[in-house]
Computed example of a mutant assay.
Amino acid sequence: MPHVQILQGLLKVNEDGVTVLASHFNGSQIRFADEVIAASDGSLYFSVASTKFGLHDWHLDVLEAKPHGQLLKYDPVLNKTSMLLDGLGFTNGVALSKDEDYLVFCETWKFRCCKYWLKGETKGETETFIENLPGGPDNINLAPDGSFWIALLQLRSEKLEFVHTSKACKHFLAAFPKLFRLINPIYKKASVVNVATDGKIIRKLDDPNGKVMNFVTNALEFEDHLYLGSLNSNFIGKLPLKTV
Rank of each mutant, 00 (worst) to 15 (best):
E121W: 09
S82I: 09
A174L: 08
H171M: 13
H171E: 15
P177S: 02
A174G: 13
A22P: 06
P76I: 02
N132M: 07
V244E: 10
A168L: 14
Q154F: 04
L231E: 07
V216Q: 00
D41A: 04
R112S: 09
E158Q: 12
E161A: 14
L7S: 11
A38T: 15
L133I: 08
F53V: 03
V216H: 03
A175M: 12
E127T: 15
L179A: 10
I130D: 00
F46H: 01
V77N: 12
T81F: 02
L7W: 10
A190I: 00
I201L: 04
D41E: 07
A151V: 07
L7E: 14
P177Q: 03
P137N: 08
E15T: 11
T217F: 01
L179I: 11
S230N: 05
K242A: 11
I183M: 09
L155H: 10
G120R: 04
E131R: 14
F172D: 01
G135A: 08
E158Y: 11
L78K: 15
L220R: 13
D34P: 00
F235L: 09
R156P: 03
L10E: 02
N132L: 04
K200R: 13
A219H: 01
P177R: 05
K204A: 09
W58Q: 10
P185S: 09
E107I: 03
R112T: 06
G136H: 07
I201W: 01
L239Q: 03
T243W: 10
E127F: 05
W117S: 09
M1N: 12
K123F: 06
S191R: 15
L142V: 06
T51C: 04
S157W: 07
T51F: 01
D206I: 06
K200P: 02
G89A: 12
K189M: 12
L241V: 07
S157Y: 05
K159N: 13
I202M: 08
E35D: 15
N79H: 14
L7I: 14
A33K: 03
T197P: 00
C114L: 13
S233V: 01
I201P: 02
D101C: 06
V192G: 04
D75H: 05
K211D: 15
A196K: 08
H68L: 04
N194L: 07
M213L: 15
S97F: 02
Q154C: 09
S28F: 11
